[in-house]
């Protein structure tokens, strides 16, 4: 299954590379708010980043495609709690953690706005794979589980070129992530978040 995801993404990249003209790299801080399985973690995460590489199609820069990679850490402290078992109990305070990594192939549509070469509001969709590592830390002990899943990420944002002749710009976006990752061991259902990203980009035109 994993191989299928990777091959799909690689294939899309090849197409993108062949057709692409102008492109840009970006690197963004990425904050996220969990929307699902909030009994495990409902704290917002400010610990994350997103990087990507996108190619425009055509001189009017209305469409682009590319690849995005992101990672984020979610964590929450849980006060002391007693869990009953069939023939006993265990009491501890603990920390729930999720280390998340996502890789998507994405495409975007840009709306014309004002000065054509400086502002690029857009909407886009990324599809790919998500890997979550779920850790429960208690004292020196750790319960851990890992899960891969399909990731869908609609996104809306804006690219702002600093100056007409500058190759640097600012990027801001909001995105919704839905992935099928789940952990039966830790009773964690699907994984969905809403994220905010802000950072810079390096334009190649």
């Amino acid at each position: 299954m994993k191989t299928k995801y990777i091959l799909s993404i690689a294939f899309m990249l090849l197409i993108v590379r062949a057709e692409a003209q102008e492109n840009f790299f970006y690197i963004n801080w990425n904050g996220n708010i969990p929307l699902s399985s909030k009994e495990y973690i409902d704290n917002a995460s400010g610990r994350g980043a997103k990087i990507g590489y996108r190619f425009f199609f055509g001189r009017d820069r209305r469409f682009s495609a590319g690849v995005d990679f992101n990672w984020a850490q979610y964590d929450q402290y849980k006060p002391k709690e007693t869990f009953e078992t069939e023939s006993g109990a265990i009491t501890t305070d603990y920390f729930n953690y999720i280390y998340q990594y996502g890789l998507t192939a994405s495409s975007q549509y840009y709306f014309p706005l004002g000065e054509k070469d400086r502002f690029f509001p857009y909407v886009g969709l990324g599809l790919g794979v998500n890997r979550n590592e779920y850790n429960v830390y208690y004292n020196i002990y750790t319960d851990s589980d890992k899960a891969f899943g399909f990731l869908a990420r609609p996104e809306a944002g804006i690219l702002v070129r600093i100056g007409e002749r500058r190759r640097m710009g600012v990027m801001a976006a909001v995105h919704y992530d839905y992935s099928t990752n789940k952990s039966d061991e830790l009773d964690y259902k699907n994984f969905s978040t809403v994220g905010f990203q802000l950072g810079i980009m390096m334009l190649q035109w």
């Binding site: 980043a49 850490q73 208690y138």
Partner: peptide, 26 residues
Amino acid sequence: VTLVGCQSEPDSLKLFDELVVSTNYD
């Protein structure tokens, strides 16, 4: 940004301030 995104683990002072207590019975 890479450093910000790196994995971290919980504060050990908070982790170690109470023992885990597991009991079992017949």
